[in-house]
Amino acid sequence: MNISFSPLGDQAIVIELGNEINEQTEQQIRKVAALLESRQPEWMTEFVPAFVTVSVFYDPCLALYDKVKIELERLLAHLGEDIPAESRTVEIPVCYGGKFGPDLEFVAQHNKLTPREVIDIHTAGNYSVHMIGFAPGFPFIGGMSEKIAAPRRDSPRIRIPERTVGIAGMQTGVYPIETPGGWQLIGKTPLRLFRPENDPPTLLQAGDKVIFKEISEDDYHAWEEDPDAENP
């Protein structure tokens, strides 16, 4: 495997593990993240895994770029020996359409489907979380069927309510906090994705498998009473 390093300024280094998003690169990213998590080099301040890179932030007073690079190379030499980390599966209940999913109709029409068919396809997918970014706990989820792909909105909404489920291109995701955004909104989950009082502070983490499960509006409201519960 080809690993390359390059600086991200004077306090970070980027480890590049591939140049396209695929299963193998994703596995490598998971392994690098697990390795950094367990070894915690003293000069490391934090690391941020993404689709094909892991960026490592460090204190240049403890190690300069060349030293960090050499130590990471040494560390990553052990990469192949590790057994891939077992991934968790997290079920996300979603109440589709209606006031929670104002763009469900659009996604259906765009793909010449009925809203029912969009829901069936969305809940049937095998999803995994590629990366957390954009907002706290916002998962970039891959694995959605192209049958329900839909373009971003021409002009982003100023305010998208927290916990809304959306589609943009081939990706699906959930907005953990209220933000502006351009995704097509198809439903809402009663589960809280961002939990600042917990460690880790997010429901989902990179590498997790995700299942979307349809729930009724009544179930939604019952569940919302306890948004941290795995089951209502």
Binding site: E46, I132, A135, T202
Partner: peptide, 10 residues
């Protein structure tokens, strides 16, 4: 806030 950027926390 250090150490939480991997969770999307700025």
């Amino acid at each position: 806030r250090t150490g939480f950027q991997k969770y999307g926390v700025i």
